[in-house]
Each structure stands twice: as structure tokens, then as C-alpha cells.
Amino acid sequence: MSGLAVPLWDPGNGQGMRQLAELGLALLLSSLIGWERAAQQKSAGLRTHTLVGIASALMMEVSQHGFSNVLGLDHASFDPSRVASQIVSGIGFIGGGIIFVRRDAVRGLTTAATVWLTCAVGMACGGGLPVLAVAVTVLHFLVVRGYPLLLRKVRTGPTPAAVELHMTCRTGNAVVPRLMQTCTQLGFRILQIRVQQKPGQTDPVRVLLELDGNADTSGLATELLQNDGVIDLALRPSAEPE
């Protein structure tokens, strides 16, 4: 490599400032997407999406500008698209870790797709396509915020309810099985049940039931409170399947 000039990155030239601007745009857009996911209390939130976005942008910058010192060598080939394809393949590991299946309910698909989209936004920023990056970010908010509202307007029939029941119950007399039976009789499907006891204390216990179904949740709460074993009850919306 004698006689080959290796260009150094200079933040004072136009190319260096453009690269910083592209990384800054990736930071801004991926943070906006991550903020929306964090506001929805999803498993991948602000930090995950931001890191995916800026990392993708950086890898695109490296793909385009990081190998300029070998372009003058004999038998050296240069294909920036190879790095881009590897980014797309690698992001699948993160997306696959977000998706999980419990019984017949699949969760995390939308969040995994959003991580994939954030990767694409970062690649567009690093690839010098800021207009496309901004446009896709706007489309992201349109899809994840606007489509659920549209579906609620066009959907016919009862809307499935996903709820969590947080109860304090007395032990004995098969209280928990009776509560589960009441839920199923009213048309709800039990997705998960957890019973917690305080250390050194056997009564009362905390019971969490995660349900879904088309029945009236207020009627369910009224029916469960009529059980002598239930001390208190809180009904909260559960995270919607994605």
C-alpha cells in the first residue's frame, strides 16, 4: 500500500458535515418512532428504536465512505449494497426476540415491524435519502395511530375485550377455581393466571387474571365482587395483541 493516500475524515469539509447531519436526522426520526412505541408501553421502546436507527445509519455511512482507501488497489471490488443487505438480515434477530406466542395469541408483531421500519429509516438517512426517511416516519404514525381508529369505525359486531383482573382474595373454599369458572361462564377466555402471596403470609393472596372475550366487562366485575372470597378488584385494559 505504499504510495496510496488514505483520506482522513475531516468534520470541517462538506462531506463530514453531511454525514453528521444524516446521523442527526436518523437520531431524530428513530427517536420519534421509539417515543410512540414507549407511549404505548411496548417491549421495544425509545432506546431500542433510537439505537437501531442510528446504528443502521452509521453502517450505511461506513458502507459508502469507509472503504475509499482501497478503491485504488488492484483486484479490489466495492459493493455498498452488500452492507445494506446484511443490515436487513441482522435486524431479524431483534425482531424475532420481540415476537412471542402465548397459547393462540401472538404479541409483538407490530413492534417487531416497527423496529424493522426504524432500521430502514436509519438506512435511508445514512444513504442520503432524507425525504424518503421523513416520509416513511410520517407514514409510520399514520399507520400505527390512524389505522386503529379507522378499524373501530368500520368494524361490525362486538369488539373483543382484553382485560386484566387484579384481585385480593381470601384463601380456602376453592376461591380461585370458582372465579375462573365465573369468567368462562360469562364468555371470557383465560389467557394467564398468577397467584402471589406475601412472604410469611398465607391470607389474603393477590390474583391476576388476564382475559379476552366479547362480553361486558362491567358485568364481569359485578359478578366477581359478589363472591365472598373477593376482597377488592381492579379491572384494567390489557395490552392489545399485535
Rank of each mutant, 00 (worst) to 15 (best):
V6R: 07
Q40N: 11
L117M: 08
R47A: 02
R145I: 01
L20I: 09
L71M: 11
V163S: 03
S56F: 05
D104F: 10
L211S: 04
A215N: 05
V52W: 08
L208W: 13
E240F: 12
P199W: 09
E210I: 02
I33C: 09
G95M: 14
S68L: 14
M123I: 02
L129Q: 11
P148T: 03
K198V: 05
H49E: 05
P158H: 02
M167D: 06
L32A: 12
R189W: 02
E164W: 05
A234P: 01
L149V: 12
G14F: 00
R178G: 15
L117H: 04
G219S: 08
S81P: 00
K42I: 00
V230E: 01
P80M: 10
L23S: 02
Q64T: 03
A162Y: 10
G97I: 11
R102W: 04
L20F: 04
R47P: 03
L51D: 09
P177S: 01
A26S: 08
F67S: 02
T137Y: 09
G97S: 07
W116M: 00
D232T: 15
Q86C: 08
L117C: 15
L165N: 03
L208V: 10
G14D: 02
H65N: 13
M60Y: 00
G229L: 07
T222N: 14
G34W: 06
G172S: 02
D79Y: 03
V134Y: 11
T168E: 13
E210Q: 08
Q196V: 11
W9H: 06
T114D: 02
G97K: 09
Q196I: 05
